[in-house]
Structures are given as C-alpha cells and as structure tokens.
Computed example of a mutant assay.
Amino acid sequence: MFKIRRFEDKGIVTFALSGRIEEEHLPGLQGLFEAESAANSTTIALDLVDVRLVDRQAIKFLATCEAQGILLKNCPSYVREWIETGRGMSHESKH
C-alpha cells in the first residue's frame, strides 16, 4: 500500500511517502509537486523513511526530483545507491 502525507514547516512542504512507490504512483506525485509549486514558492521535500520498495521508474523519478531541487530526506541507503548508480550509467552512456 502506498500513502502520502503532507506537512509544512518553516517554508518547507514535506510529502512523507510510505509503502511501495511504483510507476503508477508517479503521475500523481508529479501533479502534487506542480500544484505546490504553482501555489507558492516553498521548498519541497520527500521524506522516504517509511518507503519499503521502489521500482526502476520510481528510482528515475526520484533522481529527477532531486536534480530539480526537491530534497530527499531519510532516503534509504539502497535507494540512494540506485539513484547514484543510475546517474553514473546515464553519464557513461553519453560518452
């Protein structure tokens, strides 16, 4: 099961994600970020402390989010490793 909770504190809007993040959830997340950005100029963060599983598309999505300035809080080490590995592979394929 996938859940999203929204918190706001000191100009940072945090979406706490829990459960499994799969490709089918990504358009909804993207829509939340776009709506938040349009409503105000706050910083957006994702709290991943309760994330249990992510698929390949979710890893790409999280990497893109981070590249766009969205903070990844409490990112599980395996997710961080996959994000970094994906960046390295993308970089290598450009050569």
Rank of each mutant, 00 (worst) to 15 (best):
M1E: 00
M1D: 00
K3E: 11
R5S: 13
R5T: 14
R6D: 07
F7S: 01
F7C: 03
F7T: 03
F7N: 09
D9R: 10
K10F: 01
K10N: 00
G11A: 03
G11W: 06
I12H: 06
T14K: 02
T14D: 02
T14Q: 07
F15A: 02
A16Q: 04
A16V: 03
G19H: 08
G19V: 07
G19F: 06
R20Q: 08
I21W: 05
I21M: 06
E23H: 09
E23S: 10
E24G: 09
E24A: 11
E24L: 11
H25T: 02
H25M: 00
H25I: 00
H25Q: 08
P27K: 07
G28K: 02
G28T: 07
L29A: 10
L29V: 06
L29H: 03
Q30P: 06
Q30Y: 11
Q30N: 11
G31I: 09
G31A: 11
L32N: 01
L32R: 04
L32E: 04
L32F: 00
F33E: 02
F33W: 07
E34Y: 03
E34P: 00
A35H: 00
E36P: 04
E36Q: 03
S37W: 05
S37E: 03
A38I: 05
A38H: 06
A39K: 05
N40D: 01
N40F: 03
S41A: 13
S41Q: 09
T42F: 03
I44C: 07
A45L: 11
A45K: 06
L46K: 00
L46F: 03
D47K: 04
D47W: 04
L48F: 08
V49L: 13
V49D: 13
V49W: 11
V49K: 14
D50W: 12
V51A: 06
R52K: 13
R52I: 11
L53H: 07
R56C: 10
R56L: 12
Q57S: 15
Q57A: 15
Q57I: 14
A58C: 09
I59H: 02
I59C: 06
K60I: 14
K60Y: 14
K60V: 15
F61S: 08
A63K: 07
A63T: 06
A63F: 10
T64H: 15
C65W: 04
A67Q: 12
A67C: 12
A67N: 14
G69K: 08
I70R: 05
I70D: 01
I70M: 05
I70N: 05
L72F: 13
K73Q: 13
K73F: 15
N74I: 08
N74V: 09
N74F: 15
C75H: 09
C75M: 13
P76A: 14
S77A: 15
Y78H: 14
Y78S: 14
V79C: 12
R80D: 10
R80L: 15
E81S: 15
I83M: 14
E84T: 13
T85Y: 11
T85L: 12
G86Q: 12
R87A: 11
G88V: 07
G88E: 15
H91Y: 12
H91K: 12
H91T: 10
E92W: 14
E92A: 14
E92G: 13
E92V: 11
E92P: 08
E92Y: 13
S93K: 14
S93F: 12
S93T: 10
K94V: 06
H95G: 08
H95D: 10
H95V: 10
